[in-house]
Computed example of a mutant assay.
Amino acid sequence: MKVLVATDGSKYGRWAIEWVAQLPLAVKPVVRVLHVIDVAGLRAPFMVQPVIAGTERYIQQEIKRMEDSAKSAKKESSALLSSLGLSGTVTIDRGSVAPTIVRHAGRGVGMLAVGSRGLDALDRFMLGSVSTDVIHHAACSVLVVKEAARPLKQIVLAIDGSPASDKAVRFLVRNVAPQINGPEEEPVNVVVVHAMPFLKYPEVREAGKAIVQRYADKLAKAGFQIQEAPKLGKPAEEILKVAKQHKADLIVTGAKGLGAIGRALLGSVSTRVVQHSACSVLVVR
């Protein structure tokens, strides 16, 4: 799988690279690390005439600082790839951060890894907002990294029976090894959670249980250890509760759900989960 990692030199960018190395992927990834320099972002609307305003000298100094920082980040990322045993390259590009990342993520990339936060506003990266943009616009699956990498033992899979959920399950089956460090180790545990709204009809609860069991059977057949968690309540809240209860290392969800008619709205749910989860989140496309 081709994996793109967006970094800005912050710890979140380093964590994103380390997460790619830590994931028990079935096939060793080919990694490209991307650092974006957003020069245009330095010129706020009131600086359309920087020379007249007398600020151009300072802007040029800031551009030089950003370029030096990018070179340093490139060197550090290259060294990190090597130390982690990952094959790949490091690229520096210019442009608006989120659109540039999305453009690079469309070139045959299977997964994009990005930190949930970056450096401060003065560094013009603001990965907090960038991560939100890319989960909405990237053509590939997006891993939003919240914390330092650790062995992936506990996954919470949020499903609603939609085609997006089918894609999430296929991603796990095809790309994630069900055992850590070989078949002699414990299987990766997957908690399959599906939240249905509070309705008085027992058929609704039974339908939710049937959906959970259907996906659980597919994952169990692939070699994962499974726990089923059909829930009643608001989807995002229930997903986050299950993740906290099971001390999840990663939440996996589809990018979109059944929509208003299906009462799932995983498109908005995935955004809320990314924003409020304590652990990293993989949004699958």
Score class of each variant (00 low, 15 high):
203 E>Y: 05
115 G>C: 02
98 A>T: 02
137 H>K: 13
143 L>H: 00
109 V>I: 15
115 G>P: 02
160 D>W: 07
161 G>N: 06
101 I>T: 03
105 A>F: 12
147 E>Q: 15
119 L>G: 04
159 I>V: 15
132 T>V: 15
124 R>T: 08
187 P>L: 14
136 H>T: 14
117 R>T: 08
154 Q>M: 12
141 S>A: 15
115 G>Y: 08
107 R>H: 11
165 S>C: 01
192 V>Y: 09
102 V>T: 12
147 E>G: 00
202 P>L: 09
169 V>Y: 07
94 R>P: 00
164 A>R: 07
179 Q>Y: 15
141 S>M: 07
95 G>I: 09
124 R>D: 05
183 P>D: 10
113 A>V: 01
173 V>N: 03
164 A>G: 15
122 L>R: 13
151 P>R: 11
143 L>S: 02
186 E>F: 12
157 L>N: 11
135 I>G: 01
158 A>V: 05
174 R>V: 01
181 N>D: 15
108 G>E: 06
153 K>V: 07
113 A>I: 06
160 D>L: 08
166 D>L: 07
187 P>V: 09
138 A>T: 04
157 L>E: 13
177 A>W: 05
121 A>Y: 09
177 A>Y: 01
135 I>E: 05
126 M>R: 14
162 S>W: 11
159 I>P: 12
188 V>S: 02
198 F>V: 06
117 R>M: 06
107 R>G: 03
188 V>R: 05
198 F>S: 11
186 E>R: 12
129 S>I: 08
175 N>E: 14
148 A>T: 15
202 P>V: 03
195 A>H: 09
117 R>Y: 12
98 A>G: 09
169 V>M: 03
174 R>E: 15
156 V>H: 06
108 G>F: 13
106 G>F: 11
182 G>M: 03
195 A>M: 05
171 F>H: 01
130 V>R: 05
169 V>I: 14
203 E>N: 07
167 K>V: 07
97 V>C: 01
200 K>C: 01
130 V>A: 10
114 V>L: 11
169 V>L: 06
143 L>T: 00
140 C>I: 02
160 D>Y: 12
178 P>K: 07
198 F>W: 10
200 K>I: 09
103 R>F: 08
187 P>I: 14
138 A>W: 10
94 R>G: 04
103 R>N: 14
191 V>I: 14
166 D>I: 08
176 V>K: 00
149 A>L: 07
146 K>G: 02
152 L>Q: 12
167 K>Y: 10
171 F>N: 03
160 D>G: 04
191 V>W: 15
156 V>T: 10
111 M>W: 09
108 G>H: 13
194 H>V: 01
190 V>I: 15
174 R>F: 02
101 I>D: 00
154 Q>G: 01
182 G>P: 11
183 P>V: 12
